[in-house]
Simulated scan of single mutants.
Amino acid sequence: MLSCDVIKARQQLIQHGVVVSDRSVLGVGSGSRSRGQPPAEPQRPRGGGGASRCPPQSPGTSGTESPGLRADGERVSPGASVAAMKYGFPSLANIKTRESYVTSYDPRTRTASWVIERLNPASLSGSSNRKYCDFREDDSVHLFHRSTNDDYRGSGFDRGHLAAAANHKWSQKAMDDTFYLSNVAPQNPHLNQNTWNNLEKVCRSLTIRYLNVYVCSGPLYLPRQEADGKLYVRYQVIGKNHVAVPTHFFKVLILEQADGRGVELRSYVLPNEPIDEKVPLDRFLVPIETIERASGLLFVPNIMKRTSSLQAVTDRPTTVPRIHQ
Protein backbone atom coordinates (compact mmCIF):
# COMPACT_ATOMS: atom_id res chain seq x y z
CA MET A 1 0.00 0.00 0.00
CA LEU A 2 1.30 3.45 -0.88
CA SER A 3 1.95 5.92 1.93
CA CYS A 4 0.10 9.23 2.13
CA ASP A 5 3.28 11.10 1.14
CA VAL A 6 3.72 8.99 -1.98
CA ILE A 7 0.07 9.33 -3.01
CA LYS A 8 0.25 13.09 -2.48
CA ALA A 9 3.43 13.45 -4.54
CA ARG A 10 1.94 11.33 -7.30
CA GLN A 11 -1.26 13.40 -7.39
CA GLN A 12 0.69 16.64 -7.50
CA LEU A 13 2.83 15.35 -10.37
CA ILE A 14 -0.22 14.27 -12.35
CA GLN A 15 -1.90 17.63 -11.77
CA HIS A 16 1.12 19.24 -13.40
CA GLY A 17 0.87 17.09 -16.49
CA VAL A 18 3.68 14.69 -15.56
CA VAL A 19 2.91 11.07 -16.39
CA VAL A 20 4.22 8.89 -13.59
CA SER A 21 3.92 5.38 -12.24
CA ASP A 22 3.69 4.55 -8.58
CA ARG A 23 7.29 3.39 -8.72
CA SER A 24 8.56 6.78 -9.87
CA VAL A 25 7.54 8.42 -6.62
CA LEU A 26 8.50 5.57 -4.32
CA GLY A 27 11.64 5.77 -2.21
CA VAL A 28 12.34 8.35 0.44
CA GLY A 29 8.69 9.35 0.52
CA SER A 30 7.59 5.79 1.27
CA GLY A 31 10.13 5.03 3.96
CA SER A 32 9.02 4.42 7.51
CA ARG A 33 10.78 5.25 10.70
CA SER A 34 12.91 2.52 12.19
CA ARG A 35 11.80 1.85 15.73
CA GLY A 36 14.07 2.62 18.60
CA GLN A 37 16.25 5.10 16.71
CA PRO A 38 17.81 7.73 18.99
CA PRO A 39 17.06 11.40 18.35
CA ALA A 40 19.58 13.48 16.42
CA GLU A 41 22.47 14.92 18.40
CA PRO A 42 22.43 18.66 19.11
CA GLN A 43 23.98 20.65 16.30
CA ARG A 44 27.55 21.76 16.69
CA PRO A 45 28.04 25.53 16.58
CA ARG A 46 28.48 27.03 13.13
CA GLY A 47 27.24 30.12 11.41
CA GLY A 48 23.63 30.84 12.29
CA GLY A 49 22.67 27.64 14.12
CA GLY A 50 21.04 27.53 17.53
CA ALA A 51 19.40 25.26 20.00
CA SER A 52 15.98 24.09 19.00
CA ARG A 53 13.12 25.55 21.02
CA CYS A 54 10.41 24.21 18.73
CA PRO A 55 8.38 21.10 19.44
CA PRO A 56 9.96 18.25 17.43
CA GLN A 57 8.49 17.53 14.03
CA SER A 58 6.62 14.29 13.62
CA PRO A 59 8.96 11.80 11.96
CA GLY A 60 8.55 11.58 8.23
CA THR A 61 6.10 14.45 7.98
CA SER A 62 6.10 16.54 4.87
CA GLY A 63 4.61 19.81 3.75
CA THR A 64 0.90 19.77 3.19
CA GLU A 65 -1.23 22.16 1.26
CA SER A 66 -3.25 24.78 3.08
CA PRO A 67 -6.94 25.10 2.34
CA GLY A 68 -7.62 26.71 -1.01
CA LEU A 69 -4.40 25.65 -2.72
CA ARG A 70 -4.46 25.11 -6.47
CA ALA A 71 -2.18 22.68 -8.27
CA ASP A 72 -1.27 25.22 -10.95
CA GLY A 73 0.81 27.13 -8.44
CA GLU A 74 -1.59 30.04 -8.04
CA ARG A 75 -3.11 31.25 -4.78
CA VAL A 76 -0.92 29.09 -2.63
CA SER A 77 0.93 29.81 0.57
CA PRO A 78 4.13 31.76 -0.10
CA GLY A 79 6.88 29.33 -1.08
CA ALA A 80 4.68 26.26 -0.58
CA SER A 81 6.09 23.11 -2.15
CA VAL A 82 3.19 22.71 -4.58
CA ALA A 83 4.12 26.06 -6.13
CA ALA A 84 7.71 24.92 -6.66
CA MET A 85 6.45 22.23 -9.05
CA LYS A 86 5.37 24.67 -11.76
CA TYR A 87 8.33 23.97 -14.07
CA GLY A 88 8.46 20.25 -13.40
CA PHE A 89 11.17 18.12 -11.83
CA PRO A 90 14.69 17.49 -13.20
CA SER A 91 14.20 13.79 -12.36
CA LEU A 92 11.52 11.60 -10.78
CA ALA A 93 13.43 9.39 -8.36
CA ASN A 94 12.69 9.43 -4.62
CA ILE A 95 10.56 12.57 -4.59
CA LYS A 96 9.83 14.12 -1.20
CA THR A 97 7.64 17.16 -0.49
CA ARG A 98 8.17 19.49 2.42
CA GLU A 99 6.39 22.63 3.56
CA SER A 100 8.60 24.90 1.47
CA TYR A 101 10.44 22.78 -1.07
CA VAL A 102 10.51 19.56 -3.09
CA THR A 103 13.52 17.28 -3.13
CA SER A 104 14.85 14.17 -4.82
CA TYR A 105 16.96 12.11 -2.45
CA ASP A 106 19.94 9.96 -3.46
CA PRO A 107 20.35 7.11 -0.94
CA ARG A 108 23.80 6.25 -2.32
CA THR A 109 25.34 9.63 -1.46
CA ARG A 110 23.18 10.32 1.64
CA THR A 111 22.35 13.73 0.16
CA ALA A 112 19.71 15.17 -2.12
CA SER A 113 20.17 15.03 -5.89
CA TRP A 114 18.32 18.33 -6.11
CA VAL A 115 16.03 20.62 -4.13
CA ILE A 116 13.54 23.03 -5.72
CA GLU A 117 12.00 26.03 -3.98
CA ARG A 118 10.04 29.11 -5.04
CA LEU A 119 10.98 32.56 -3.75
CA ASN A 120 9.02 35.79 -3.84
CA PRO A 121 8.69 38.78 -1.51
CA ALA A 122 5.96 37.02 0.47
CA SER A 123 8.07 33.92 1.17
CA LEU A 124 10.94 36.09 2.38
CA SER A 125 8.78 37.98 4.87
CA GLY A 126 7.72 36.84 8.32
CA SER A 127 8.79 36.42 11.91
CA SER A 128 10.39 32.97 11.58
CA ASN A 129 13.82 32.69 13.14
CA ARG A 130 16.50 30.06 12.60
CA LYS A 131 17.47 30.21 16.27
CA TYR A 132 14.43 28.03 16.89
CA CYS A 133 15.63 25.41 14.39
CA ASP A 134 18.01 22.51 14.74
CA PHE A 135 19.64 20.15 12.26
CA ARG A 136 18.03 16.74 12.52
CA GLU A 137 17.91 13.37 10.82
CA ASP A 138 15.26 12.71 8.20
CA ASP A 139 13.45 9.73 9.68
CA SER A 140 11.56 9.19 6.43
CA VAL A 141 14.84 7.97 4.91
CA HIS A 142 15.80 4.38 5.70
CA LEU A 143 18.34 4.07 8.50
CA PHE A 144 20.87 2.53 6.09
CA HIS A 145 20.72 5.53 3.75
CA ARG A 146 20.47 8.62 5.92
CA SER A 147 23.08 10.98 7.30
CA THR A 148 23.34 11.98 10.95
CA ASN A 149 24.81 14.90 12.86
CA ASP A 150 27.56 12.57 14.04
CA ASP A 151 28.69 12.15 10.43
CA TYR A 152 29.43 15.87 10.23
CA ARG A 153 30.86 16.33 13.70
CA GLY A 154 34.62 16.78 13.47
CA SER A 155 34.63 16.25 9.69
CA GLY A 156 35.80 19.74 8.82
CA PHE A 157 32.70 20.32 6.68
CA ASP A 158 29.63 22.46 7.29
CA ARG A 159 26.09 21.21 6.85
CA GLY A 160 25.46 23.32 3.78
CA HIS A 161 21.81 24.08 3.06
CA LEU A 162 20.46 23.40 -0.43
CA ALA A 163 17.12 25.11 0.24
CA ALA A 164 18.27 28.04 2.36
CA ALA A 165 16.61 28.73 5.71
CA ALA A 166 16.45 32.48 5.08
CA ASN A 167 14.36 31.85 1.95
CA HIS A 168 11.39 30.75 4.04
CA LYS A 169 10.64 33.27 6.75
CA TRP A 170 6.93 33.08 5.90
CA SER A 171 6.46 30.03 8.15
CA GLN A 172 8.42 28.70 11.11
CA LYS A 173 7.64 25.15 9.99
CA ALA A 174 8.82 25.95 6.47
CA MET A 175 12.11 27.24 7.85
CA ASP A 176 12.37 24.33 10.27
CA ASP A 177 11.98 21.87 7.38
CA THR A 178 15.14 23.24 5.76
CA PHE A 179 17.12 21.79 8.67
CA TYR A 180 16.48 18.17 7.76
CA LEU A 181 19.85 16.60 7.00
CA SER A 182 18.36 15.40 3.71
CA ASN A 183 18.44 19.09 2.67
CA VAL A 184 22.14 19.59 3.36
CA ALA A 185 25.44 18.33 1.97
CA PRO A 186 29.03 18.48 3.24
CA GLN A 187 30.29 21.90 2.25
CA ASN A 188 33.61 23.64 2.70
CA PRO A 189 33.07 26.10 5.59
CA HIS A 190 34.59 29.04 3.73
CA LEU A 191 32.39 28.37 0.71
CA ASN A 192 29.27 27.88 2.84
CA GLN A 193 29.71 31.03 4.87
CA ASN A 194 30.86 33.30 2.05
CA THR A 195 30.41 32.69 -1.69
CA TRP A 196 27.53 30.18 -1.40
CA ASN A 197 25.85 32.47 1.13
CA ASN A 198 26.34 35.42 -1.23
CA LEU A 199 24.71 33.46 -4.06
CA GLU A 200 21.73 32.74 -1.82
CA LYS A 201 21.47 36.46 -1.12
CA VAL A 202 21.49 37.17 -4.85
CA CYS A 203 18.60 34.74 -5.30
CA ARG A 204 16.61 36.63 -2.70
CA SER A 205 17.47 40.02 -4.15
CA LEU A 206 16.14 38.95 -7.55
CA THR A 207 12.62 38.71 -6.11
CA ILE A 208 12.50 42.51 -6.33
CA ARG A 209 12.91 42.40 -10.10
CA TYR A 210 11.13 39.17 -11.02
CA LEU A 211 7.63 37.89 -10.33
CA ASN A 212 8.88 34.58 -8.93
CA VAL A 213 12.34 33.08 -8.52
CA TYR A 214 12.52 29.29 -8.73
CA VAL A 215 15.78 27.90 -7.36
CA CYS A 216 17.07 24.36 -7.88
CA SER A 217 20.24 23.45 -5.97
CA GLY A 218 22.23 20.27 -5.72
CA PRO A 219 25.62 18.53 -5.57
CA LEU A 220 27.87 17.54 -8.44
CA TYR A 221 30.64 14.93 -8.64
CA LEU A 222 32.84 16.00 -11.52
CA PRO A 223 35.86 14.29 -13.09
CA ARG A 224 39.37 15.64 -12.81
CA GLN A 225 42.38 14.83 -14.93
CA GLU A 226 45.15 13.21 -12.93
CA ALA A 227 48.87 12.66 -13.46
CA ASP A 228 48.37 9.71 -15.81
CA GLY A 229 46.32 11.89 -18.15
CA LYS A 230 43.07 10.04 -17.42
CA LEU A 231 39.87 11.44 -15.93
CA TYR A 232 38.64 10.18 -12.57
CA VAL A 233 35.68 11.00 -10.37
CA ARG A 234 37.00 10.98 -6.83
CA TYR A 235 35.28 12.33 -3.73
CA GLN A 236 35.66 12.03 0.00
CA VAL A 237 33.06 10.46 2.29
CA ILE A 238 32.54 11.41 5.92
CA GLY A 239 31.20 9.70 9.02
CA LYS A 240 30.19 6.13 9.65
CA ASN A 241 27.41 6.52 7.07
CA HIS A 242 29.86 7.53 4.34
CA VAL A 243 28.16 10.78 3.37
CA ALA A 244 29.51 11.85 -0.01
CA VAL A 245 31.36 15.16 -0.22
CA PRO A 246 30.48 16.84 -3.54
CA THR A 247 33.28 18.17 -5.69
CA HIS A 248 31.00 21.01 -6.82
CA PHE A 249 27.55 22.49 -6.25
CA PHE A 250 25.07 23.82 -8.79
CA LYS A 251 22.28 26.33 -8.53
CA VAL A 252 19.78 26.86 -11.36
CA LEU A 253 17.61 29.98 -11.24
CA ILE A 254 14.35 30.12 -13.20
CA LEU A 255 13.32 33.76 -13.21
CA GLU A 256 9.71 34.57 -14.08
CA GLN A 257 9.32 37.97 -15.66
CA ALA A 258 6.25 40.05 -14.95
CA ASP A 259 3.41 40.49 -17.45
CA GLY A 260 4.06 37.11 -19.07
CA ARG A 261 7.24 38.25 -20.82
CA GLY A 262 8.84 34.85 -20.48
CA VAL A 263 11.49 33.21 -18.36
CA GLU A 264 15.16 33.96 -17.78
CA LEU A 265 17.54 31.16 -16.83
CA ARG A 266 20.77 31.46 -14.88
CA SER A 267 22.88 28.46 -13.90
CA TYR A 268 25.93 28.39 -11.64
CA VAL A 269 28.55 25.80 -10.72
CA LEU A 270 30.82 26.43 -7.74
CA PRO A 271 33.71 24.21 -6.60
CA ASN A 272 33.43 22.85 -3.07
CA GLU A 273 36.48 24.71 -1.87
CA PRO A 274 37.40 28.18 -0.59
CA ILE A 275 36.75 30.90 -3.17
CA ASP A 276 38.36 34.32 -3.08
CA GLU A 277 35.61 36.75 -2.11
CA LYS A 278 36.87 39.17 -4.77
CA VAL A 279 35.85 36.75 -7.52
CA PRO A 280 32.45 37.87 -8.88
CA LEU A 281 29.63 35.35 -8.89
CA ASP A 282 29.17 35.84 -12.63
CA ARG A 283 32.48 34.02 -13.00
CA PHE A 284 30.64 30.81 -12.13
CA LEU A 285 27.84 31.11 -14.68
CA VAL A 286 27.74 28.11 -17.01
CA PRO A 287 25.44 26.96 -19.83
CA ILE A 288 22.53 24.95 -18.45
CA GLU A 289 23.60 22.06 -20.70
CA THR A 290 26.77 21.76 -18.65
CA ILE A 291 24.79 21.00 -15.51
CA GLU A 292 22.35 18.72 -17.34
CA ARG A 293 25.19 16.62 -18.76
CA ALA A 294 27.16 16.46 -15.52
CA SER A 295 24.21 15.70 -13.23
CA GLY A 296 22.02 13.49 -15.40
CA LEU A 297 19.16 15.94 -14.81
CA LEU A 298 17.04 17.80 -17.36
CA PHE A 299 15.66 21.31 -16.90
CA VAL A 300 14.99 22.90 -20.28
CA PRO A 301 12.41 20.41 -21.65
CA ASN A 302 10.16 20.94 -18.63
CA ILE A 303 10.60 24.70 -18.66
CA MET A 304 9.67 24.91 -22.33
CA LYS A 305 6.36 23.20 -21.57
CA ARG A 306 5.40 26.23 -19.48
CA THR A 307 6.75 29.13 -21.50
CA SER A 308 7.29 30.11 -25.12
CA SER A 309 10.12 32.51 -24.29
CA LEU A 310 13.31 31.36 -22.56
CA GLN A 311 16.43 33.49 -22.31
CA ALA A 312 19.55 31.91 -20.85
CA VAL A 313 22.18 34.14 -19.24
CA THR A 314 25.50 32.41 -19.82
CA ASP A 315 28.00 35.21 -20.37
CA ARG A 316 31.06 34.61 -18.27
CA PRO A 317 34.83 35.11 -18.46
CA THR A 318 36.86 32.37 -20.10
CA THR A 319 38.82 31.83 -16.86
CA VAL A 320 36.07 29.72 -15.30
CA PRO A 321 37.51 26.33 -14.25
CA ARG A 322 36.79 23.81 -16.96
CA ILE A 323 34.12 21.23 -16.28
CA HIS A 324 34.86 18.03 -18.17
CA GLN A 325 31.88 16.57 -20.02
Rank of each mutant, 00 (worst) to 15 (best):
I14A: 08
R75T: 09
W114R: 02
R98Q: 15
N149A: 04
K173A: 08
L211M: 09
C4D: 15
F284T: 03
V313D: 12
V300G: 07
E99K: 03
H324D: 05
S100R: 13
N94Q: 04
G229A: 10
I275T: 02
P90M: 04
G29N: 02
N149C: 06
E256R: 11
G36Q: 06
E226H: 11
R53A: 11
S91E: 13
R10S: 08
P301G: 04
G63N: 07
V269P: 10
T148D: 00
P39G: 11
G31D: 08
Y132K: 08
G68W: 06
D106Y: 06
S34W: 06
Y268D: 04
P42M: 07
L231A: 08
I14P: 00
A40N: 01
I14Y: 01
F299R: 10
V18A: 07
G154K: 07
V243I: 12
L191T: 03
R136E: 10
K8D: 09
D177G: 00
I323A: 04
D228C: 07
G79A: 09
Q172H: 08
V245Q: 05
Y105S: 01
S81H: 14
D5P: 00
A227W: 09
P271W: 01
D139T: 13
F249N: 00
S127Q: 13
R98P: 00
R209V: 10
Q236K: 15
S128E: 00
Y210K: 06
Y87V: 07
V213F: 12
F299A: 12
P59E: 11
V313M: 12
E200G: 15
G31N: 04
L119T: 02
F135G: 11
A312H: 02
N149I: 12
C4S: 14
S127K: 14
P274L: 09
C203V: 05
H142V: 12
T318V: 03
Y87A: 00
K8M: 10
S123T: 11
M85E: 04
S205T: 09
P42I: 05
A294G: 08
A9P: 00
T195I: 13
L255V: 09
S125A: 14
K251F: 07
D151W: 06
S100M: 09
Y152F: 15
D151C: 14
E117M: 05
V237Y: 00
D176Q: 01
L253F: 07
R23A: 11
D72W: 02
G160N: 04
R159D: 01
F89C: 15
D228G: 11
M1R: 12
T111M: 11
Q187A: 06
W170Y: 10
T103R: 13
T148K: 08
S30E: 10
A122S: 07
N167R: 01
C4I: 14
D282W: 09
V313K: 03
P38I: 04
L191H: 07
V115G: 05
K131Y: 01
L191N: 02
V263S: 02
V202W: 07
T318G: 08
E292S: 03
F249R: 14
Q37G: 05
V18Q: 01
V19P: 03
G156H: 02
E41H: 07
D106E: 12
D315G: 02
I291V: 12
Q12M: 13
Y214V: 05
R153W: 09
R46Y: 14
